[in-house]
Deep mutational scan, measured.
Amino acid sequence: EDEVKKIVKRLIENGVDDEQIKEIVKRQGVDERIVDKVLKELK
Results as ranks from 00 to 15, higher is better:
Glu3His: 12
Val35Asn: 00
Ile24Trp: 02
Glu19Cys: 05
Val38Leu: 13
Ile34Leu: 14
Val38Gln: 02
Asp2Asn: 10
Asp31Pro: 13
Ile12Asn: 02
Arg10Met: 12
Lys22Trp: 05
Gln20Arg: 13
Gln28Ala: 13
Arg27His: 11
Asp18Pro: 13
Leu42Ser: 07
Leu42Gln: 06
Lys5Gly: 04
Lys37Leu: 07
Ile12Lys: 11
Lys26Asp: 02
Glu41Arg: 02
Ile34Lys: 05
Val25His: 02
Gln28Val: 11
Gln20Met: 14
Val35Met: 06
Asp31Cys: 04
Lys26Pro: 02
Asp2Val: 09
Val35Pro: 00
Arg10Gln: 14
Asp31His: 09
Leu42Gly: 05
Ile21Asp: 00
Arg33Gly: 11
Lys26Leu: 15
Ile12Met: 14
Glu32Trp: 04
Leu39Val: 04
Ile21Thr: 02
Glu41Ile: 03
Glu3Cys: 05
Lys22Asn: 03
Val35Asp: 00
Asp31Leu: 09
Asn14Val: 10
Lys43His: 14
Lys22Ala: 06
Asp17Gly: 13
Ile24Cys: 04
Ile34Trp: 08
Val30Cys: 05
Gly15Met: 07
Lys40Ala: 15
Val4His: 01
Lys37His: 08
Gly15Pro: 01
Lys5Pro: 02
Val16Asn: 11
Asp36Phe: 01
Glu13Leu: 09
Asp2Met: 10
Glu32Thr: 09
Asp31Trp: 02
Val8Gly: 00
Ile24Glu: 06
Lys40Asn: 14
Ile34Ser: 05
Val38Ser: 02
Lys5Cys: 06
Lys22Ile: 13
Asp36Tyr: 01
Glu13Met: 10
Arg27Ile: 08
Val38Thr: 04
Lys37Phe: 04
Lys37Trp: 04
Leu11Gln: 01
Leu42Asp: 03
Gly29Cys: 04
Asp31Lys: 06
Glu1Asn: 10
Ile21Gln: 00
Glu19Asp: 13
Arg33Met: 11
Lys43Phe: 07
Gly15Gln: 06
Lys26Thr: 14
Arg33Cys: 06
Lys40Trp: 05
Ile7Pro: 00
Asp2His: 09
Gly29Met: 04
Glu32Asp: 11
Lys9Ser: 09
Glu19Trp: 10
Glu32His: 08
Asp18Asn: 09
Asp18Trp: 14
Lys9Met: 09
Ile34Gly: 02
Lys6Arg: 15
Lys6Ser: 12
Asn14Tyr: 12
Asp17Ser: 15
Lys6Tyr: 02
Gln28Arg: 11
Asp17Arg: 12
Lys43Gly: 15
Val38Phe: 06
Val8Met: 07
Val25Gln: 04
Arg27Gly: 12
Val4Gln: 01
Val4Thr: 05
Ile12Trp: 15
Val16Trp: 14
Val25Arg: 00
Gly29Ile: 03
Val30Glu: 02
Glu3Leu: 12
Lys9Asp: 04
Val16Ala: 10
Ile24Ala: 06
Asp17Ala: 14
Glu32Leu: 10
Gln20Ala: 13
Ile34Thr: 12
Glu3Asn: 10
Lys37Ala: 09
Asn14Ile: 15
Lys22Tyr: 10
Arg33Leu: 13
Leu39Ala: 01
Asp2Gln: 11
Val8Trp: 00
Ile24Phe: 03
Asp31Gly: 05
Asn14His: 12
Glu13Thr: 08
Val8Lys: 00
Val25Trp: 01
Ile21Tyr: 00
Asn14Gln: 15
Val38Ile: 15
Val30Phe: 14
Glu23Ala: 14
Glu41Pro: 00
Val4Arg: 01
Gly15Asp: 05
Lys26Val: 15
Glu32Tyr: 04
Glu32Gly: 12
Asn14Lys: 15
Asp2Ile: 10
Lys37Cys: 05
Gly29Val: 04
Glu41Leu: 02
Glu32Ile: 13
Lys5Ala: 08
Leu42His: 06
Leu11Ile: 01
Glu13His: 09
Glu23Leu: 06
Asp2Phe: 08
Lys43Ala: 13
Gln20His: 13
Ile21Leu: 06
Glu13Pro: 01
Ile12Ser: 05
Val30Thr: 06
Glu41Phe: 02
Ile12Val: 09
Leu42Val: 14
Glu23Met: 07
Glu3Phe: 12
Asp18Gly: 08
Arg27Val: 08
Lys22His: 08
Val38Pro: 00
Gln20Ile: 11
Ile7Asp: 03
Gln28His: 13
Lys9Phe: 02
Lys22Cys: 03
Lys40Glu: 15
Lys37Glu: 08
Val35Glu: 00
Ile21Met: 03
Val16Cys: 05
Arg10Ala: 15
Lys40Pro: 07
Asp18Tyr: 13
Glu3Thr: 09
Lys6Asn: 12
Val25Asp: 00
Asp18Ile: 15
Glu1Val: 13
Glu13Ala: 11
Lys37Gly: 05
Arg33Val: 11
Glu41Gln: 07
Arg27Ala: 15
Glu1Lys: 08
Asn14Thr: 14
Val35Ala: 07
Arg10Thr: 12
Asp36Ile: 11
Val4Gly: 01
Lys26Ala: 12
Val8Ser: 01
Arg33Glu: 11
Asp31Phe: 03
Lys37Asn: 07
Leu39Asn: 01
Lys26Phe: 03
Glu23Ile: 13
Gly15Ile: 02
Val16Lys: 11
Glu19Arg: 09
Val25Asn: 02
Lys43Tyr: 10
Ile21Cys: 02
Asp18His: 10
Glu3Tyr: 12
Arg27Cys: 06
Val38Asn: 01
Val35Phe: 07
Val8Ile: 14
Gly29Thr: 02
Glu13Arg: 08
Lys9Tyr: 02
Val38Lys: 02
Gln28Gly: 10
Ile7Val: 10
Lys43Glu: 15
Val4Met: 06
Ile7Cys: 05
Lys43Ile: 10
Ile7Asn: 05
Val4Leu: 10
Asp17Phe: 07
Ile12Thr: 05
Ile12Glu: 02
Glu23Thr: 11
Lys9Asn: 07
Lys37Ile: 07
Glu3Val: 12
Lys6Met: 12
Val4Asn: 01
Ile12Ala: 06
Arg33His: 13
Leu11Asp: 00
Lys22Arg: 14
Val8Pro: 00
Arg33Ser: 14
Glu19Pro: 07
Lys43Trp: 07
Asp31Ala: 11
Ile7Arg: 08
Val38Arg: 01
Ile21His: 00
Val4Lys: 01
Val16Asp: 05
Asp17Pro: 15
Glu1Met: 14
Arg33Thr: 13
Leu11Phe: 05
Gln28Cys: 07
Ile21Asn: 00
Gln20Tyr: 09
Glu19Val: 11
Asp31Ser: 11
Gly15Lys: 06
Asp31Val: 06
Leu42Met: 09
Glu41Thr: 03
Glu23Pro: 01
Asn14Gly: 11
Ile21Ser: 01
Ile21Glu: 00
Val35Cys: 03
Lys37Arg: 12
Asp17Asn: 12
Gln20Gly: 11
Arg10Phe: 09
Leu11Met: 10
Asp36Gly: 03
Lys9Thr: 08
Leu39Glu: 02
Gln20Thr: 15
Asp18Val: 14
Leu11His: 04
Gly29Asp: 04
Gln20Cys: 02
Glu1Trp: 14
Val30Lys: 06
Arg33Tyr: 13
Val38Tyr: 07
Lys9Trp: 02
Gly15Asn: 08
Val16Arg: 08
Leu42Thr: 07
Glu3Lys: 11
Glu13Ile: 08
Arg33Lys: 13
Lys40Cys: 05
Lys43Met: 11
Val8Ala: 04
Gln28Met: 15
Lys40Ile: 11
Leu11Gly: 01
Glu3Met: 14
Lys9Gly: 08
Val30Leu: 13
Ile34Phe: 07
Glu23Cys: 05
Leu39Trp: 01
Asp36Trp: 01
Val16Leu: 15
Glu1Phe: 14
Val4Tyr: 03
Asp18Ala: 13
Glu23Tyr: 01
Ile7Gln: 09
Asp2Lys: 08
Val30Tyr: 15
Val16His: 14
Asp2Cys: 03
Ile24Thr: 07
Asp36Pro: 00
Val4Ser: 01
Lys40Tyr: 04
Ile7His: 07
Lys43Asp: 15
Asp36Leu: 04
Leu11Thr: 00
Ile21Gly: 00
Lys9Ala: 11
Val35His: 00
Glu41Ser: 04
Val8Cys: 04
Asp18Phe: 15
Val30Gln: 05
Val35Tyr: 05
Glu19Lys: 10
Val35Leu: 13
Val16Ile: 14
Glu32Arg: 07
Arg10Lys: 15
Ile24Arg: 06
Leu42Pro: 02
Lys5Trp: 03
Asp36Thr: 08
Asp17Trp: 06
Ile7Ser: 05
Leu11Val: 00
Glu3Gly: 09
Glu19Tyr: 10
Leu42Asn: 04
Arg27Tyr: 04
Asp31Arg: 05
Lys22Gln: 06
Asn14Leu: 15
Lys6Gly: 09
Val25Ala: 10
Val4Trp: 08
Ile34Met: 14
Gln28Tyr: 10
Arg33Ala: 15
Leu42Arg: 04
Val35Arg: 01
Gly29Arg: 03
Glu1Ala: 09
Lys6Pro: 03
Glu23Asn: 11
Lys40His: 15
Glu13Gly: 08
Val35Gln: 01
Glu3Gln: 10
Lys5His: 08
Leu39Lys: 03
Lys26Cys: 06
Lys5Gln: 06
Lys5Val: 10
Glu13Asn: 09
Asp31Met: 06
Asp17Met: 11
Val16Phe: 15
Glu41Cys: 04
Ile12Gln: 11
Val4Asp: 01
Lys40Gly: 15
Asp2Trp: 08
Gly15Trp: 04
Gly29Lys: 04
Ile21Pro: 00
Val8Leu: 06
